[in-house]
């Protein structure tokens, strides 16, 4: 007999701390529905923090970049030095740039 625990979908959890600026991936958990996922995330990942924001996303719904593509996706950016502020030579007299 198959055990329904297999059927509880996997959710990825992202938490933003009260003092934080963005949601960070903290891990995953199993839940049957969105409401349960949030409650489980609260009990599992926020026992030591207050005033957090929780995002729960079905793992299947996440689209991720492929590590094999990393070179193609990200290498070209390393050559584009003109995007970095240190590339530009601003005279010292101009203070606020």
């Amino acid at each position: 007999m198959s055990d329904p625990v297999k059927d509880w979908p996997l959710y990825e959890i992202f938490i933003r701390a009260r003092s934080g600026l963005d949601h960070k991936h903290v891990g995953s958990l199993h839940a049957t529905d969105a409401r349960m996922a949030i409650e489980h995330a609260r009990d599992l990942y926020t026992r030591r923090q207050e005033g957090v924001s929780i995002w729960a996303v079905r793992s299947n719904d996440i689209v991720a970049s492929d590590p094999a593509e990393a070179e193609a996706l990200f290498e070209p950016a390393r050559d584009k030095v003109y995007r970095h502020p240190t590339f530009y030579d601003i005279p010292d007299e101009v203070k606020t740039l």
Partner: peptide, 21 residues
């Protein structure tokens, strides 16, 4: 909670928690 974090890490390697349990 620690057990849950670890099962979660194991699952990233392609095994289901139900199988481990």
């Amino acid at each position: 909670g620690h057990g849950a974090y670890l099962y979660s890490a194991a699952e990233t390697l392609g095994v289901a928690r139900a199988e481990l349990v």
